[in-house]
Simulated scan of single mutants.
Amino acid sequence: MHIRPAAATAGALVGLTAFCLPAAAAQAADHPHRPVTVAHRGASAYAPENTVAAVDAAHRMGVAWVENDVQRTKDGKLIVMHDTTLNRTTNVEELYPDRAPWKISDFTLGEIEKLDAGSWFDAKFKGERVPTLERYMDAVSHNDQKLLMELKSPELYPGIEAQILRQLKEEGWLDRQHVKHRLVLQSFNGDSVKKVHELRPALKTGFLGTPAIADLPKYAKFTDQINPSYKTIDMAYVSAVHAFQGAHGRPLEVYTWTVNDAPTAKKVASWGVDGIITNAPDVVRNALKDSGFLVPAA
């Protein structure tokens, strides 16, 4: 079965009235539970995204969950970066002016480690580096944080699913405690999510996108979360997703992105989402706390 790399949102909300679960929605409103707050690329409103500085910023705020993006260099090393090119968040154009379009896959790790990944955000972060996945994981482990890891554009990096799993194992992140409570792998590429599930069935996975309701049963065979943009969903969609059991026999979860203001955080929380991915985790967390959303039982 081939799953589209990014499910089209067109038609995703068609027929939701038939799938809406009024009783469940009413129960969520009467007994509001606070969604998990996830620091998007770290606390990226306050430090350069996908850097150790952003991980540490989230830690100082007391935010347990961070999200990142993993890609592969020309010489086969795993690094943490969102874009498939280096020029937006580093000084690669200055150091390597003749190597446009500056694709990650065209640079070795040694070349990438020379780049400044902080000055573009704020001069006080000058000298911040693009982290290897190993260095990034060391920081997350040191802070006792949890990780929502995105396989970014895995179609560009054949075999990256198995490579990431090997790295996670080396870092001690595939033991029972991490797999059950501290780690989720997600991607916009459904085939990649399916591959992760096949290679490591116990691992929790998420699909990034807004699949049509009719397509949810096939996703539910290999994923535990449907993680859409908040702009593409409503309460009916969240309730419809929750009606399906995911790969591990529990209701599919919804982690929505990227919510950076208090009113939107309160709105999506009222829809019953399970997680909110945000550049400003302090803003989201405080909004939910002030609105009376309850911390879920452990």
Score class of each variant (00 low, 15 high):
Pro5Val: 09
Ala8Trp: 12
Ala8Gly: 12
Thr9Asn: 11
Thr9Cys: 07
Phe19Tyr: 15
Cys20Ile: 07
Ala26Val: 13
Gln27Cys: 10
His31Ser: 14
His33Lys: 15
Thr37Trp: 01
Ala43Thr: 01
His59Cys: 08
Arg60Ile: 03
Val63Lys: 00
Ala64Val: 11
Gln71Met: 13
Asp75Pro: 10
Lys77Glu: 14
Val80His: 00
Met81Asn: 06
Asp83Phe: 03
Asp83Gln: 10
Thr84Tyr: 01
Thr85Ser: 13
Pro97Gln: 11
Trp102Ala: 04
Ile104Leu: 15
Thr108Arg: 10
Thr108Asp: 10
Ala123Cys: 04
Ala123Thr: 12
Lys124Met: 10
Lys126Asn: 10
Val130Ile: 14
Pro131Gln: 05
Ala139His: 05
Ser141His: 12
Leu148Ser: 03
Glu150Asp: 08
Leu151Gln: 02
Leu156Ala: 13
Pro158Thr: 11
Gln163Trp: 10
Gln163Pro: 04
Leu165Val: 08
His178Asp: 06
Lys180Phe: 08
Leu183Ile: 08
Leu183Val: 06
Leu183Cys: 05
Gln186Leu: 11
Val196Ser: 05
Ala202Arg: 14
Leu203Ile: 14
Leu208Asp: 02
Leu208Pro: 01
Gly209Ser: 08
Thr210Cys: 10
Thr210Glu: 02
Thr210Gly: 02
Ile213Ala: 12
Lys218Leu: 13
Tyr219His: 05
Ala220Ser: 11
Thr223Gly: 09
Gln225Val: 12
Ile226Asp: 02
Lys231Tyr: 09
Val238Arg: 02
Pro251Tyr: 08
Thr256Ser: 07
Thr256Glu: 06
Trp257Ser: 01
Thr264Cys: 06
Lys266Cys: 07
Ala269Leu: 11
Ser270Cys: 07
Trp271Thr: 04
Gly272Gln: 04
Gly272Ala: 09
Asp274Gly: 07
Pro281Ile: 08
Asp290Ile: 06
